[in-house]
Amino acid sequence: MEVDKGKGEAEETRKVAEADRDTVTLKSSDGKLFEVSKEAAARLSTVLAGMIAGGSIDDNGTDLKQIGSEALENVVDYCNKHANSIPSAALISSSISFNTAPFKEPEEWERKFVDRLSHDALFDLVEAANFLGMERLLDVTCHKISEMMKGKSPDQIREVFNIKNDYTKEELEEIRQELAWAFYDD
């Protein structure tokens, strides 16, 4: 679709039409287009909120060159699901607790949302959430990754995440000594 940039009037009309729209169109690195509710995008992503407020949203698809189509689809899906879900009372009250950080536990649908992702899709989504400044989605994805680490030995963690242990024996011994207090109950 061609936008006639030559005519100021047409441009003006386009801008007005865009401001009236209640969705924004996002374009993945591989050129796929996704529509998302403007309200949800602005509420859940500081980066998109900034772009919407600053008028840098492109009606023909705002380029998000860092995000692939699969990850962007998940981002948009998350935004739409979030827009439709009503925060539970438990979610709000769980944030108020003696000396704990205000981490909100993921809601049931959020758990399911990240549980169905493949290993790579999960990490693509973490990166996308981080890039777009989506605090809540970052919380939910990081929570999932922490669950994948919990209760596992260092070797098991290395296996799950393909972490290459390139310490020397001497370095490992040094760390174990320096941080012996953290390893005492191993």
Binding site: C142, I145, N165, D166, R176
Partner: peptide, 26 residues
């Protein structure tokens, strides 16, 4: 982002133990 993940592990000692995973985690 790694800090966000470590914060969700079971306590500071558990987070400290990730230092032996690899030099990246030191």
């Amino acid at each position: 982002v790694l800090v966000l993940i470590l914060l969700r592990l079971d306590g500071t000692a558990t987070a400290v133990r990730t230092s032996i995973l690899s030099p990246r985690w030191r």
